[in-house]
């Protein structure tokens, strides 16, 4: 059994850890849910440019007086930072597919050992659609998956092989959960950081995919 942590703590811990990974001058797209929170933790010593799929390059926080003509993913009102620009959807996705994004951060239903993820369709039930996710995981240089370690029924979301329809094949570079940071290194999913509440054995027992343990395994940053 993994320890039960407070939901909000979990969400913010994951977001904060991913924020610490982003490099100076990186162009980054944040998905909805936990990924959105990453913007609250951007390191102040780095200039990070947030891109939204609907066309903003240089998105800022929710303004005091929201203007509904300026929104981001999920319809969240945004401000424009000085130096920002706005383009139409063809150009926005040209940037995305064309490799002009350093990172995309998105949630998932499943992520597997080969770096494939599934987050757009539960056949017979939910049909949200892929939105921009398939383009983002195809085009961004780094694909961060921000997810709770287990689903609501207590099953690992880091699985051996995805069973749901895939969003992208072999595209995930980093997975961050409340208990660990997993990076794809040399084609292998590698446990690089672990939260202080769990042991490696406990973590592996609650993870569906096979993880290599990094010889440089360290305590999760940002806690």
């Amino acid at each position: 059994m993994l320890p039960a942590l407070d939901d909000e703590l979990v969400r913010h811990r994951i977001a904060k850890r991913i924020a610490l990974d982003l490099e100076d001058q990186a162009v980054v797209n944040l998905g909805i849910g936990i990924p959105t929170l990453v913007s609250d933790y951007l390191p102040s010593d780095r200039h990070i440019i947030l891109q939204t799929e609907n066309g903003v390059i240089g998105a800022g926080p929710i303004p005091e007086k929201p203007d509904l003509r300026f929104i981001g993913a999920g319809g969240r009102p945004l401000s424009l930072v000085p130096g920002s620009s706005i383009v139409a959807s063809d150009f926005s996705f040209g940037l995305i597919r064309g490799g002009h994004l350093d990172a995309t951060v998105l949630g998932t239903l499943e992520v597997d050992e080969e770096g494939s993820l599934a987050n757009w369709w539960i056949p017979g039930k939910l049909v949200p659609g892929m939105g921009g996710a398939m383009d983002l995981v195809t085009g961004a240089k780094n694909v961060y998956v921000a997810t709770t370690h287990l689903d609501k029924k207590g099953r690992p979301k880091l699985v051996k092989k995805c069973t749901l329809p895939l969003t992208g094949v072999g595209v995930v570079t980093t997975i961050v959960t409340e208990f660990c940071v997993v990076r794809r290194q040399g084609g292998k999913m590698t446990l690089c950081e672990i939260a202080p509440e769990v042991s490696v054995e406990e973590l592996l027992a609650n993870t569906g995919m096979t993880l290599s343990v990094s010889p440089e395994l360290r305590t999760m940053l940002g806690i």
């Binding site: 996705f93 597919r97 398939m134």
Partner: peptide, 27 residues
């Protein structure tokens, strides 16, 4: 996919017979 959606419209409007996209390959 959203990028494919808009590019298909762009093709429709700009006289192109289609385009080749890496998005969705293998899914």
């Amino acid at each position: 996919p959203q990028g494919t959606f808009v590019e298909r419209i762009r093709c429709g409007g700009f006289g192109l017979g289609g385009f080749l996209s890496p998005t969705g390959v293998g899914t």
